[in-house]
């Protein structure tokens, strides 16, 4: 151990974890993809799944809702909507079954209403464990429905995006969801209602090119990958070396495509402040 490390006073419980930290029996450990520290699940849980180095771990849609909305305020809607393999794509049914088993979710997005600091909002949260949040027809339908519901009941919408893009196994039916959701966002917007998107890791492809970029206010989590074309595709096409921060939250903020970057720990407060500023009442 270096002398600096020896003298370093941990600022929080996360910092005391090192590569050599001994896990308590039976507890899952996670390695930070950024700084390679080994972290215990319980410690991560305490720190909103943010590493000491600032890396924001990907979290499930349900965990996000639990973390960022008032306790027991979430009421799920439209959970009966599931993909029905619209173009009978070979092997897709099996893939769906695997995704359902792995994630415990029926689709790549969860929709409903919840309160933040007592203020009611319609929400959608996409799930990285369900085919990396890819957008199929059911995903688009659920998002469209939550916007239509919010328009009908004059509610703001908060949406957390995570997506590898359109779901190719649904072909054109997936592509059409970009137009469909955009139409629902437009109607909500024309009713004078607030839509906040929170871009989380990763937000790419057809989701970036539709409802993720259509928010009145676009918030991003630090270090999230946000872009249209995939990094590898850009690399192969241009044969240029890409800037280190290419397609990150910081990159898109610098280029004018996000309003604010906020760590997960300050996110609920920010969302509450924004809702209040737009007349949200408890």
């Amino acid at each position: 151990m270096s002398i600096l490390k020896f003298l370093h006073k941990p600022q929080n419980a996360l910092e005391t974890e090192g590569r050599s930290a001994e896990p308590s029996v039976g507890e899952t450990e996670y390695i930070c993809p950024n700084c390679h520290r080994t972290l215990r699940e319980s410690t991560l849980e305490e720190h909103s799944w943010i590493c000491v180095c600032g890396h924001h771990f990907r979290i499930s849609a349900r965990k996000r809702i639990q973390m960022l909305t008032d306790e027991n305020s979430f009421k799920e809607m439209f959970s009966f909507i599931e993909s029905n393999d619209p173009i009978t794509f070979p092997g897709y049914q099996e893939k769906l079954e695997k995704a359902r088993a792995k994630s415990g979710e029926s689709e790549s997005v969860i929709t409903g209403t919840a309160r933040i600091g007592g203020i009611k909002a319609a929400i959608f949260a996409m799930s990285p464990e369900f085919m990396m949040g890819s957008m199929g027809a059911a995903t688009g339908e659920k998002i469209t429905r939550i916007f239509e519901y919010a328009t009908q009941y004059s509610l703001p919408v908060i949406g957390w995006t995570v997506s590898g893009g359109a779901r190719m196994q649904e072909g054109l039916m997936s592509l059409m969801q970009m137009a469909k959701t955009s139409g629902a966002v437009l109607r909500h917007s024309e009713a004078g209602l607030l839509y906040i998107t929170v871009l989380t890791d990763p937000t790419t492809g057809g989701v970036t090119a539709s409802f993720a970029m259509e928010g009145d206010i676009i918030v991003a989590e630090p270090g999230a990958t946000v872009g249209f074309a995939g990094r590898r595709v850009v690399e192969q096409t241009t044969m240029e070396s890409l800037p280190r921060d290419f397609q990150t939250s910081e990159f898109i903020l610098e280029h004018g495509f996000a309003d604010i970057i906020i760590p997960r720990t300050g996110e609920k407060k920010l969302l509450y402040d924004l809702l209040r500023l737009h007349g949200g009442r408890q």
Partner: peptide, 16 residues
Amino acid sequence: CGIGAEERGQGEAIAE
């Protein structure tokens, strides 16, 4: 698909 296109918001342009 390119660096400039991403810098100038390809996703946002299509979404808009």
